[in-house]
Nucleic acid binder design. Sequence first.
DNA 1: TCTTTTAGATATATCGTTATAGCATAAATA
DNA 2: TATTTATGCTATAACGATATATCTAAAAGA
Lengths: 334, 334
Amino acid sequence: MSVKPTLASVAKEAGVSIPTVSQVMRGTGRISEQTRKKVLQAAKKLHYVTDSRAAAMRSGEYHEVGFLINQLSNPFNAEVISGVVDLLDAEGYLVSVLDTRDDAARQSRHLDAFIRQRRGGLIWVPALQTDDDTLAMLAAQAVPTVSFMRPANAQMDYVGIRNAEATAMATRHLIELGHRHIAYLGGVGMNFVRKQRVEGYVHTLSAQGLGEGIVWQCPENKLAGLSAMQELMHKHPQVTAVVCNGDMVAIGACLALARDGLVAGHDMSVIGFDDIQDAIVATPPLTTMAISPKNLGMRLARVLLDRMRDPKAPATATEVSAKLVLRQTTGVPG
Amino acid sequence: MSVKPTLASVAKEAGVSIPTVSQVMRGTGRISEQTRKKVLQAAKKLHYVTDSRAAAMRSGEYHEVGFLINQLSNPFNAEVISGVVDLLDAEGYLVSVLDTRDDAARQSRHLDAFIRQRRGGLIWVPALQTDDDTLAMLAAQAVPTVSFMRPANAQMDYVGIRNAEATAMATRHLIELGHRHIAYLGGVGMNFVRKQRVEGYVHTLSAQGLGEGIVWQCPENKLAGLSAMQELMHKHPQVTAVVCNGDMVAIGACLALARDGLVAGHDMSVIGFDDIQDAIVATPPLTTMAISPKNLGMRLARVLLDRMRDPKAPATATEVSAKLVLRQTTGVPG
DNA sequence: TCTTTTAGATATATCGTTATAGCATAAATA
DNA sequence: TATTTATGCTATAACGATATATCTAAAAGA
């Protein structure tokens, strides 16, 4: 294997100076057609590729952004990422994804490494337990940053979901179907998103005089949803409907029903959140609060682009609404 | 927002020279305890974080690696990634994930951007239609690279799966159960992985005098698996068992059966590949050729580490075996 | 013919680090 | 006391690129 090609080696190969090569590569300055060809040929021969870190160091222009996500294995997130990448890719940015797994220590390490790389911008879902030191560090670095799902503070752009509105809508839907004992299932701890969602659920219940509700925890995956639903049914047999924190949990809940020979939408109503691809092929197909993850991702990307172009503009907060998508897991109480 | 802190600003704050700060930050050289404290305090106050690009440029040491994956939304890949990250994170490397979506043009753009960043290492699943130019470019850059799933060429390390062995095992299992009309379902085009898997299937069939088999294409997701299975059953009603290219397709196939009121493992045997988490909670639970994705990821990481430590060592090829995990989607012909 | 303009290239400084060598001052040795 | 050695810090050059200024030769104008 040869050594990495640099401007210097290309310049030598083409018999010109280093700045000349630099100008040819970027299409700036006054260069004769003859020299241009000579340089391009040499660059091609040596497989020259610009060292963007060295370039960025001098020019101050960064075309790399990072995306710190809290759970890479969640298909909803994967689709958001694809939306972000689609738009930023078209604008000439490289998007690198890092998985924090919602662990503050891991996030801190990743964030440190990210800052060390001096990328152009950052999108992140602040991990649970994110401490003030981390926020102070991030602010000190002056990196254009957008918070996703969970707002970090008022000085930082934020893109998220109207969570309370969505769960209120879901709960209302179940009440209108005639349900009186509705539980909330999913999510762990009282993080921002879950707090909002639970609030929307609780407020709607109490506004209708249906008590304080039943709130049940579980991690965001199918297996956890399955066993949580089993426990819930055992402890609270009067429940006839559940609002779920996410589709994975909702699908898990439906699996629990199926194991007991029950049918979702008939014996028990289940409503999800996210509208992941699995929701459509689930049996029965899942009624859910739909977010278009791809659009959400593109919105995120646009906010980040705006921030990078104008670092001094006031911070923005963007919230998108969820839409109730009726499929077959909700119905009148059986 | 303040300007980004540098060694120079910390040096000024602490009243010492730039090299002194550099030495304190890295714990090298001879520094008095007094100066050390002074510098650390100044660094903390300004939230100084090393610019790793500038550092790497001088020292030649890179602690960032990239992972170009062909499908981020596939949970199997997500688990492989988590294995890679776990090990490399512990060794002080930052892993950035890029999604090529198996598109050669997108891969080419990402690879270019990656090379421009001069990272320390690369793991990639060469996209379908990867051209020789791309390989030549990569070779010219002298970046430690490991190919995953699909070998790029003999000069490059490779970590993958014993595909033919696995599908042969799967096919043999079905034959032993008494099946005589076994189809192969899933995958698109004749890429390396699919070719090997189909070969394992075809050889086993013909060795048993069961003809050439039926090979059916479809993308690696549940919905595609569902409709492909419907078509397959319509065109080839004699088929009683299918070997699938992946669990997503297998689960989709089971959904197709359920829609027709059929039961996998009884009316039709289905065997998957990967053993993703969904395989366990599928109804019925999926029989599959299991790979431990996390271990695979850690293996990958170790090969990359070895390569980075010794760039001149001969290229290695590592293949892991799949294990038949019996659940409920295979049984005697109904 | 002499000056001015312009095209086409290059010299030089710089970005934020690290590596190497060097230079004081204090301590240890002869 | 003179010399060596160790300690603690700094000057300088480099990494690979870009920005700015400069320089030469040819073309255009006076």
